[in-house]
């Protein structure tokens, strides 16, 4: 019953929005209104989830759960960002400087770390996935693109090579296009299933 109520609401609201989108030239104002409501509800959902996260971590500190130091760090980082944002304003240059001074190095170094992880994963590719059409074409493509991206060789003087490279550079678009169409069909199917309230067998 609980989820049936949610499914009926989803089907109704989704169908209305779909109709509004279809008749957008005449129903634009209504569409904007519903979109506004959705933004507010999504924001409240996020705040509820954040509150739930904080309560959970405060509970972890209170009961002294293993690794509660992490919970302490999380709560401190939250308060150190939330309170100044609320009182100084989220557009305050000092506040934004403080945020980016912490967030930027963290995110950049995480991205850098991922490059190292990718490198180690690529080295182990054949060991973990074995030899198949997919792995071989993946490896050859990755090696060739890496070689081309590094710009170690200049083929512009050779007509045949530059034509071949030009043709090779277009190949990934073919696979990407096929994958995108397939994924879009899958997403379309899930979307319609939500709209007709038939998302899965065991709602």
């Amino acid at each position: 019953m609980r989820q049936r109520l949610a499914l009926i609401t989803a089907a109704l609201s989704g169908s209305v929005v779909l109709l509004l989108l279809f008749f957008q030239p005449v129903a634009g104002a209504y569409l904007a209104l519903v979109l506004n409501w959705a933004i507010i509800v999504a924001s409240v959902a996020l705040l509820v989830a954040i509150a739930s996260l904080l309560v959970t971590h405060i509970r972890f500190i209170a009961v002294g759960r293993r690794g509660f130091i992490y919970s302490f760090v999380l709560i401190t980082a939250f308060l150190a960002t939330f309170l100044p944002g609320l009182f100084k304003g989220v557009e305050d240059p000092g506040y934004l400087g403080w945020i980016s001074a912490i967030q930027k190095p963290l995110e950049l170094s995480l991205l850098g770390l991922i490059a190292l992880v990718m490198m180690s994963a690529a080295v182990k590719l054949f060991r973990v996935r074995g030899w198949s059409v997919l792995t071989v074409s993946f490896a050859i493509s990755a090696l060739l693109f890496l070689f081309l991206n590094l710009g170690l060789s200049d083929w512009s003087g050779n007509q045949i090579f530059s034509t071949l490279i030009d043709a090779f550079l277009r190949l990934p678009v073919i696979g990407a296009r096929g994958l995108l169409i397939g994924v879009a069909l899958g997403a379309l199917l899930v979307g319609f299933r939500v709209l007709i309230g038939q998302e899965s067998d065991n709602e």
Binding site: M118, A121, V128, R129, L134, L179, V183, L185, G186
Partner: peptide
């Protein structure tokens, strides 16, 4: 798709293309 491409290099079984849906 870019997530699938990166995860393909891992040892984990990955659902490719539309199979995910």
């Amino acid at each position: 798709i870019s997530g699938q491409a990166a995860l393909f290099a891992s040892g984990a079984p990955v659902l490719l293309g539309e199979d995910y849906y």
